[in-house]
């Protein structure tokens, strides 16, 4: 199944392209000192608002800092930070979803009630609340993401576990007395992990948008650290005299989020052959409202 997923994905040229873009962005962020031509925080007042040059490929900002280097360093909070938060909340949601879906009964009821309560909170508003009370900063926004997103993942993963657990070979394994943990890890997790990938990737994009939005408002990453939303916030002060400063960070966000969304779509399409048509229909109807709830634009 994994192989087929991979070959399906590779046949889709757009998916390969987006995968390459994402890979490049992640690598550039992780090895920012190698990729960045300059120190992102090095102020050079002689070069204020300098245009593009061979030395500074994307020009310089209001403090004469290298925009390209700031963009590359900005990947760290804007993309890598979000990825880490996503990873934690997906892990938490996957764990609870697996437990709820597999053991059913009371465990399931308790976990799902908690999920219901979590989901009845408006996510965007609660992120604002947590930041407001714990204080402004990147760490608190990421913390808010982790605390608020898991319930949504847990619910979707539970649904797919319920479906997987109905499969005959898993029923058979249960009857023959294979320990629950073994069944979960060996049979349920591989089937469900594909769904997890789709769910996680589809919210990755909107989380990047949200984080940059909070930074834009001045609630996230604080100056002088580089972050895409923060860069836009700084560029906004000179929006009318130097509108070109808005371009680079904005396009970086659009490019990244588009790549992530394309990737997520391709993943979903690649997974389709493994799902029966009726199941797909059910899933679409069941998950769409929840999905839309997760998609709050920043």
């Amino acid at each position: 199944m994994k192989m087929r997923l991979l070959t399906n994905l590779l046949q889709d040229k757009l998916a390969v392209l987006s995968l390459a873009v994402i890979g490049l962005i992640l690598a550039a962020g992780a090895m920012a000192p190698v990729f960045a031509p300059h120190d992102p925080n090095a102020v050079n007042m002689d070069l204020r608002y300098a245009g593009a040059s061979w030395h500074y490929l994307l020009g310089n900002d209001h403090l004469g800092r290298c925009i390209l280097s700031r963009l590359i360093y900005g990947i760290r909070p804007s993309v890598l930070g979000v990825l880490a938060a996503l990873f934690v909340s997906v892990a938490l949601g996957a764990f609870l979803g697996l437990v709820a879906g597999y053991f059913k009964g009371k465990t399931d009821a308790v976990i799902m009630r908690v999920c219901d309560i979590m989901l009845s909170f408006p996510g965007y508003v609660m992120t604002l609340a947590i930041v407001g009370i714990l204080g402004v900063g990147l760490g608190n926004i990421l913390l808010a993401f982790m605390l608020l997103k898991w319930a949504w993942f847990a619910r979707i993963i539970r649904a797919s576990v319920l479906q997987a657990a109905e499969a005959d070979y898993i029923k058979f394994a249960r009857i023959t007395g294979v320990p629950s943990i073994t069944i979960l890890l060996r049979h349920v997790v591989p089937v469900v992990s594909a769904d997890i990938a789709v769910v996680a990737s589809s919210s990755f994009g909107s989380m990047i948008l949200q984080l940059s939005g909070f930074s834009f408002l001045g609630l996230g990453v604080q100056a002088p650290n580089a972050e895409w939303g923060m860069m836009l916030n700084e560029a906004r002060d000179v929006m009318f005299s130097r509108p070109e400063l808005m371009l680079a960070p904005g396009l970086a966000i659009v490019l990244t989020v588009s790549a992530v969304n394309f990737m997520s779509d391709a993943l979903q399409t690649a997974l389709d052959p493994t799902l029966s048509k009726t199941n797909r229909k059910f899933r679409e109807q069941a998950s769409l409202p929840v999905k839309l709830r997760g998609k709050e634009v920043a």
Binding site: G205, L209, G250, I253, S258, N261
Partner: peptide
């Protein structure tokens, strides 16, 4: 619409 969803609304 795919590209529009990727654009930050403040931008």
């Amino acid at each position: 619409s795919f590209f529009l969803t990727a654009i930050p609304s403040y931008w």
